[in-house]
């Protein structure tokens, strides 16, 4: 009886020590799930999800505080990928966070810009160049289309322009053929 108990106890102590050592030796810095969720998010940093940027939203999802359908720029496909990653069911984008739009970039009407720098301060990815009392302009290749620069503009000279199809970004479409009609 005593031998049995002491053997079990010894086993427990040894295993406990091994686990304790492993938890220190193989410790993972940060939460890998957050990284994975963040990699799926589109990085527009638009805040439409209700969090200040994509990473905070990723953290909220991993803590279970936010749902997976709050990211309109990621679209339905983004929700699907998140559902796959987290093993949840797909759900439609929540209407209160906005709807999926075609990718667009901000364009500043350079004639009306008064050089107030408010949009520069609002841009989360530093895609607007300009200085006080100088005309501002958007670097289109860096713009994520988050629309955060639109409301601060005091003269309403920023509008969103959908990206046009050019020979550079054109790609073959999904083939659609008529099926054979039954006579």
């Amino acid at each position: 009886m005593i031998i049995a108990v002491s053997v079990m106890a010894l086993g427990a102590i040894l295993l406990g020590a091994a686990l304790g050592y492993a938890s220190i030796r193989f410790r993972v810095e940060g939460d890998p799930l957050v990284e994975k969720i963040d990699a799926i998010l589109p990085q527009t940093q638009c805040g439409q999800c209700g969090f200040p940027g994509c990473r905070p939203y990723a953290e909220a999802i991993s803590r279970g505080e936010a749902d997976i359908n709050q990211c309109p720029p990621g679209g339905e496909e983004g929700v699907r990928k998140l559902a796959d990653l987290l093993g949840r069911d797909f759900k439609a984008l929540s209407a209160e966070h906005g709807e999926e739009k075609a990718k667009s970039v901000a364009v500043i009407d350079e004639q009306s810009c008064i050089g107030c720098t408010l949009c520069i301060q609002a841009c989360p990815v530093d895609a607007i160049v300009g200085a006080a009392k100088q005309m501002h302009t958007v670097v289109a290749s860096l713009c994520t289309g988050c629309e955060l620069c639109v409301p601060p503009c005091p003269v309403d000279c920023i509008h969103m322009e959908a990206l046009r199809e050019t020979a550079e970004n054109w790609r073959w479409k999904y083939p659609v053929f008529q099926l054979e009609q039954a006579a």
Partner: peptide, 30 residues
């Protein structure tokens, strides 16, 4: 036609992914 579609789509996603990574980097730097 299907293979061309798949290739174009994979390239486009690759481009989007690198654009997203660049945006994340710029946001973090900002």
């Amino acid at each position: 036609d299907y293979f061309r579609y798949a290739k174009g789509e994979i390239w486009a996603r690759e481009r989007e992914k690198s654009a997203a990574d660049a945006a994340r980097e710029r946001f973090e730097f900002r």
